[in-house]
Structure formats: C-alpha cells, structure tokens
C-alpha cells in the first residue's frame, strides 16, 4: 500500500471508532464531551511543532496550546460539577 492509502485506511477506521464511541455518550454529558473533544482537537499542535522555523508555526503552537489547556480546564470544571451532584445524594 502506498502512504496515502495507509493514511486513508486509518481515517476510515477512525470514522467508525468515532461514530460508535460518541453514540455511547449519555446526553447529560454532551457539554463536557464537546469540551473534551474540543481540547483534543488541539492535537493540531503537532503540526505546529514541525513548523518551528516560521513565525506562523510558533503562533499556531500558542493558539493550539490555549485550546488544549483551556479546553481541559473547562472540562475538568464541568465534570467536577457532576461529581458534586453525586456527593449530594
């Protein structure tokens, strides 16, 4: 298989995995799901790291980093609220 076909295979498999995994999430957690998936879309930072010799690449690393850390911190706070509901029982 050539390189592009391999990548395409991974893409197709990931579509299936994503589909089944996401449908498993309970509707009550859609907001945290969105927030976590938002944070992990910051994986685009890997592309920024390979572009360190251009200022746009460094700026991209900054933006993606805000996305990652902001996203995880928002998710953490949201999920902590759901835990609080649990403790109040």
């Amino acid at each position: 298989m050539d390189n592009f076909t391999i990548l395409l295979t991974f893409f197709a498999m990931a579509c299936f995995i994503g589909y089944f995994v996401v449908w498993g999430v309970t509707p009550a957690l859609y907001s945290p799901l969105m927030s976590v998936s938002n944070a992990i879309s910051g994986i685009v930072i890997l592309g920024a790291i390979t572009n360190g010799n251009d200022w746009w690449g460094i700026f991209a690393a900054f933006l993606a980093s805000v996305n990652i850390f902001g996203g995880f911190s928002v998710s953490r706070r949201m999920l902590a609220m759901f835990r609080r509901g649990e403790k109040n029982k």
């Binding site: 893409f11 994503g18 589909y19 996401v22 799901l33 969105m34 879309s41 994986i43």
Partner: peptide, 18 residues
Amino acid sequence: NILMITVGTIVGASGSIL
C-alpha cells in the same frame, strides 16, 4: 501524521453527531 488524523477524525465525528 496518523495521530493527528485519527484524533481529528474522532473530534470531527463527535461534533457531527452532536
């Protein structure tokens, strides 16, 4: 980059399903 492709796809799928 396989890592970026798979993780990006999962995010894309999650957003699309929502």
